[in-house]
């Protein structure tokens, strides 16, 4: 198994992801793309750009911070910094694409679904992730996946680094002993 994916790999994976999403939605109909803070938001931005170049005309954007909806808040202390959620587009009746960087236990996505309910009632909610590393603790699955890494040990860490937040595009799998 590879432990490192470089800039051109990330570019390729993102393009694959954009192609899968583009095939699933009508470019002439409204679509809301909501990223989960922090790196899900960056990926949502990139996907939006790629989808626009594929002819999508009517994309609404938003950012979701799920910190206050986490089910492990009482265990993880000290308080993680809760960022603001920015959803100013109407969600009711419009398809919504939820975007995150890595899908692991599924708990962030569960928190995000709880949070979205407070903002409206989308026609459908679909999930796009750059990396699916397995290890689900909840009955949650992604609809569109950039790359699947099925054999990452539970105690390893999958880090997605992006130019906008980290200065470099890469995916790094860090085994336990490296930390």
């Amino acid at each position: 198994m590879r432990n490192h994916y470089d800039q051109s790999d990330v570019q390729y994976i993102l393009n694959e992801l954009a192609a899968k999403v583009a095939a699933a939605f009508d470019p002439n109909q409204p679509l809301n793309i909501i990223g989960i803070r922090t790196r899900g938001e960056t990926i949502a931005q990139r996907l939006t750009t790629l989808l626009k170049s594929r002819g999508f005309k009517n994309i609404g954007r938003g950012v979701l911070d799920v910190t206050l909806y986490r089910d492990d808040l009482s265990e993880i202390g000290p308080a993680p910094l809760a960022g603001p959620t920015e959803i100013s587009v109407p969600l009711d009746g419009i398809p919504l694409l939820l975007v995150d960087d890595v899908l692991f236990t599924g708990r962030s996505v569960r928190s995000a679904l709880d949070a979205l309910v407070d903002f409206g009632r989308p026609a459908v909610i679909r999930l796009a992730v750059l990396v699916d590393r397995g290890g689900r603790e909840l009955p949650i699955a992604a609809d569109y996946v950039g790359i699947t890494l099925p054999h990452v040990p539970r105690d390893a860490r999958v880090n997605v680094h992006l130019v906008e937040t980290d200065g470099i595009d890469e995916i790094v799998v860090e085994p336990k002993e490296a930390r």
Partner: peptide, 18 residues
């Protein structure tokens, strides 16, 4: 932190489960 909570008060559902 208060910046984030100010945003909560602008929502139609002004409540989070924290």
């Amino acid at each position: 932190t208060a910046d984030s909570f100010k945003e909560v008060s602008t929502r139609s559902v002004k409540k989070v489960p924290a």
